[in-house]
Design a protein around this nucleic acid. Structure first.
Lengths: 125, 125
DNA sequence: TTAGATGCAAAGGGTTTGCAACGTC
DNA sequence: GACGTTGCAAACCCTTTGCATCTAA
């Protein structure tokens, strides 16, 4: 089972201390202030553990590899968490939400990306 | 300006020939059937050019680095295309869309991710 | 005592790049 | 002929891993 460690606790604290969606390297630099001899490998390892424990989450798709699409029209996707296949989703674009969020947050929004996760038909059986 | 080349045309054809959201490596293997001496570097280069020309698009966030979030509750994000900062978006989750898409497509959907792109307040000035 | 955690450094794996040769306009 | 493209291989960069050592329980 998972044990406590100075390092893991400091890493969790660092991630929770900001809303800036830090990279592993940012966390590494931050934690080094407190534990100068910590290693990047430990940061990666603990970040992964903390994710599994549900203490932190990872932002973005961050697929390991880039995937390309011959269909350049904006459309939504579904990624099967088991077989990793990516499917196009036949659902109309919600253009309105761009304006709503732009107004509320003060951003200028050009587009959005929506990806669903779960199990595809094949992987459900 | 951009010139035509056998390689680039074959690469575009390969991407357009499928809806499977291929990786660069898949495209490489596919084009090799036609141009055995093509190199992976060319595939990457041309894919990037084709993206700039709007002929293909890239799926997913595919941020170069993973970013972490101390807030494990599902929420939406905004990424500034200029300064690359990621912001949390204060917009209620649309849970209903999961069911709608699941029913329509036959998937089992556990969650979705929504990311907006554009310019943040600072970068608009 | 003992299995999990750490540091360090090397290995991995996808992507990018420098450079000389080549092809297109 | 000028300049964009290609192939090849080396370089990159982030992330993962093997291993001996350390440490929490």
């Amino acid at each position: 089972m998972a044990r406590k460690s100075k390092q893991k606790e400091a890493i969790l604290r660092a991630v929770k201390s900001t809303t800036s969606h830090p990279t592993a390297d940012w966390v590494y630099e931050k934690v080094k202030e407190e534990i100068p001899h910590i290693s990047l490998g430990t940061v990666y390892r603990d970040l992964k553990l903390l994710k599994q424990e549900g203490e932190v989450s990872e932002v973005g798709l961050t697929d390991t590899l880039s995937r390309f699409d011959g269909n350049t029209q904006n459309h939504y996707h579904f990624k099967c968490e088991q077989c990793a296949h990516i499917f196009d989703v036949d659902e109309p674009l919600d253009e309105e939400i761009n304006e709503r969020v732009a107004k509320k947050m003060g951003f200028k929004i050009s587009h959005h990306r929506l990806v669903f996760y779960g199990l595809c038909q094949e992987c459900q059986s």
